[in-house]
C-alpha cells in the first residue's frame, strides 16, 4: 500500500470514527446519568440528519443556521423525551429491562415516523464543504474530512469544559457518580438526567448532520450505525468520555482498512465479530474494566 493510500484511508476512517464517537458519547452520557443503555441512539442520529435535510436543502437556510436549528430541535426533543417518557419510569421503579425495551420501541417508532415523513428513498444534499477534493501531500482529501475533524474537536473540548467547568455540568457529573448524595445536596436528579438526554440527542443530531456528505440518508440507516456506535462505546469502555472517542476512532479506522484490504461486503460482519470477541475478552472495555459484582 502506498503512503498516499494509507493517509487517504486514515482520514476516511477517522471521519467515520468521529461520527461513531459522537453517537457513542451520547450513549455513555446517558448510561452514566441513569444506568440506561439507549438503543435508539442510531435512530436519533437518523432523524437529526433528516431535520438538517429539511432546513438546509428544502428550506435553503444557510448551513450554520440549519445546523443550529437542528441541534436545538433535537436537544429539546431529547429533554422532553426524558421528562415525559423515561424519567417517570425511573421514578416509578420500572424493571430496568422494560425501560431498556422502551428505548427499543422508541427506535422502531422513530424509524417508522421518518419513513412516513420523508419517504423510503435515499436522500442526499449538496456537500456544504464542497465536493472537490483538495490535493495535499499528493493525496486527494475531501474538504469535509477536515471540517468534520475540526467540528468534533471543538465540540468535544466545549463539552469537556461544560462538564468540568460549569455548575450544571458539575451537577450532572455528580448525579452520574453519586445520585443519592447529589440529591441530598439539593441537585435535581430528574432535571439533570433530562439535561443529559438533551446533550445526548444533540450529539446524535450532530453525527446525523456530519454523516450526510459521507453516506445518503435512509430511514433505516440508524440500524447499522447504531451498532457501530454501541461497539465504539463498549470497546472504549461504557461510561468513559475518552473511551467513546478512542472506541469510535478504532472502529472507523478498522472498518475502512478491512473494506479496502479484505472485502467491503463483510466489513460490518468484521466489526461485529471484533466487538463480540472484544466483549468476551475484556467486557469492561479499554477504559473501564470493572463490571463485576461484589458478593
Amino acid at each position: 500500500m502506498s503512503l498516499a493510500t494509507l493517509i487517504q484511508l486514515i482520514f476516511q476512517g477517522l471521519n467515520m470514527g468521529l461520527i461513531y464517537a459522537l453517537a457513542a458519547l451520547g450513549i455513555s452520557l446517558i448510561w452514566n446519568a441513569s444506568g440506561l443503555f439507549n438503543f435508539s441512539q442510531g435512530d436519533l442520529l437518523t432523524i437529526g440528519g433528516y431535520i438538517m435535510l429539511t432546513f438546509f436543502s428544502f428550506l435553503s437556510l444557510p448551513y450554520p443556521v440549519a445546523f443550529l436549528i437542528t441541534i436545538v430541535i433535537m436537544g429539546i426533543a431529547g429533554y422532553l423525551l426524558s421528562k415525559g417518557y423515561f424519567y417517570p419510569m425511573f421514578q416509578q421503579n420500572f424493571n430496568p429491562q422494560i425501560i431498556l425495551i422502551g428505548t427499543v420501541a422508541l427506535s422502531v417508532f422513530i424509524r417508522n415516523s421518518v419513513l412516513l415523513t420523508w419517504g423510503p428513498n435515499a436522500k442526499t444534499y449538496t456537500n456544504p464543504f464542497g465536493s472537490k477534493p483538495l490535493a495535499l501531500f499528493g493525496v486527494n482529501l475531501m474538504p469535509h474530512y477536515f471540517w468534520n475533524i475540526v467540528i468534533v474537536a471543538v465540540l468535544v473540548l466545549a463539552l469537556q469544559m461544560f462538564l468540568k467547568g460549569t455548575v450544571i455540568g458539575i451537577a450532572m457529573r455528580a448525579v452520574a457518580q453519586k445520585p443519592v448524595a447529589a440529591s441530598l445536596m439539593g441537585v435535581k436528579v430528574g432535571q439533570m438526567i433530562s439535561l443529559t438526554f438533551l446533550l445526548s440527542t444533540g450529539l446524535a443530531a450532530i453525527s446525523g448532520i456530519l454523516i450526510a456528505p459521507i453516506i445518503p440518508l435512509t430511514p433505516e440507516m440508524g440500524g447499522l450505525l447504531a451498532i457501530k456506535a454501541f461497539a465504539a462505546a463498549l470497546i472504549g469502555g461504557l461510561g468513559s468520555f475518552g473511551g467513546a472517542l478512542v472506541g469510535g476512532i478504532i472502529i472507523g479506522i478498522a472498518e475502512v482498512f478491512f473494506a479496502t484490504l479484505v472485502t467491503s461486503t463483510y466489513k460490518d460482519v468484521f466489526i461485529f465479530a471484533v466487538l463480540i470477541a472484544f466483549l468476551m475478552i475484556r467486557p469492561g472495555g479499554i477504559f473501564r474494566a470493572d463490571i463485576s459484582e461484589k458478593v
Binding site: I227, F230, L238, D268, I276, M280
Partner: peptide, 19 residues
C-alpha cells in the same frame, strides 16, 4: 456470550449476531 456478559453488553452482542 451470556456466560460472561449481562445487561446491555449481552443485548448488543445478540443484535450483532442477528445482523
Amino acid at each position: 456470550p451470556s456466560f460472561k456478559l449481562t445487561g446491555p453488553f449481552l443485548v448488543v452482542t445478540t443484535i450483532a449476531l442477528g445482523e
